[in-house]
Design a protein around this nucleic acid. Structure first.
Lengths: 116, 116
DNA sequence: TCCACGTTTCAATAATCCTTGAAATGTTGA
DNA sequence: TCAACATTTCAAGGATTATTGAAACGTGGA
C-alpha cells in the first residue's frame, strides 16, 4: 500500500455509511453481500449505497463481482491489512511504542491469530 | 477510541499535508515541533498549517502547548495506537487473517517492540 | 421478445472541506 | 509601553464530496 492509496483509503473510512458497509463486508467474508442487501442493512437508498461502494472500491478495500442480477461486494482483506501496516510502519516510523499497545487487540494476541 | 473519534481521525489522515505533518511529529517525539517550523518543513503557509493542525488536534492525534512565543505540537502516541487498534478489532471484527499480516511490520516483530 | 428486477449513472443541489490573504491575538524584549 | 514576532482567526472563494430522484443499463425468466 503506497501513500497515495492510503490517503484514498483513509478518506473512504472517514464516512459513517462507508465504515458500516465495510464492517458488514468484513464479517461476511469472501462470500460477500449483494448491493441491495447492503442498502437494506444500512438503511440508505440503493443509489447512495452504490455511490459509497464505488468509493470503497476505488480505495481498494472492497471488490465487486456480478452474480446473476446482483452485484456482490466483498472486503479485500489484503488491502485492509496493508492499510494497518501502513499506519504501523510508514506512519509511526520507528516508534515501536505506538504500535506495541495495538498488539493487545484480541485478534492479534499470540496464538490466537491465523498463522500467516 | 470510539467510532465517532475514529471517523474524525480517518478524515484527518486523508489529507496529504496533514499526513506529512503527523509524520514529522511522530519522528520528533515528545519534544514536538513549533507551528512555524512545521510550516517551513511542509512548505505551506502558516495560516494553512494552522488550519490543518487544528484538524489534527480535533482528531486527538496531536496536542498543542505554548512555549514562549511558539506553539509546539506533538503527536499523541496513545491516540495513534488507539486508531490502529480500532482498525484491528472494531473494524476487522474477529478476522485474524486481516491483522496477522500487519504484524510483519518491522516495529511489531516480537523482540523489537517496546515492552508495554 | 418482453417485462421485471437489481443496480448504476446522471444531473442538480446541498454540504463540507481547502486555500488565501488580511486582520486580530498573545508574547517577549527593549 | 511599544514594536516585532509567532501564530491563529476570519471571511471569501474555489474545490471536492454527499444526497436525491429519475432515467438508463444489464440480466434472467415468462
Amino acid at each position: 500500500m503506497d501513500e497515495r492509496q492510503a490517503l484514498i483509503a483513509f478518506g473512504a473510512l472517514s464516512q459513517e455509511t462507508r465504515l458500516r458497509l465495510l464492517r458488514l463486508l468484513v464479517v461476511a467474508g469472501p462470500d460477500g453481500i449483494a448491493a441491495g442487501s447492503l442498502a437494506e442493512q444500512v438503511e440508505v437508498s440503493p443509489s447512495n449505497v452504490s455511490f459509497h461502494l464505488k468509493e470503497l472500491e476505488r480505495s481498494g478495500l472492497v471488490t465487486a463481482r456480478r452474480d446473476a442480477r446482483s452485484i456482490v461486494y466483498s472486503a479485500e482483506y489484503d488491502a485492509l491489512s496493508g492499510l494497518i501496516r501502513f499506519l504501523m510502519e510508514d506512519c509511526c516510523s520507528g516508534r515501536p511504542e505506538i504500535c506495541a499497545p495495538a498488539l493487545a487487540a484480541p485478534c492479534c494476541r499470540p496464538g490466537e491469530g491465523t498463522r500467516q
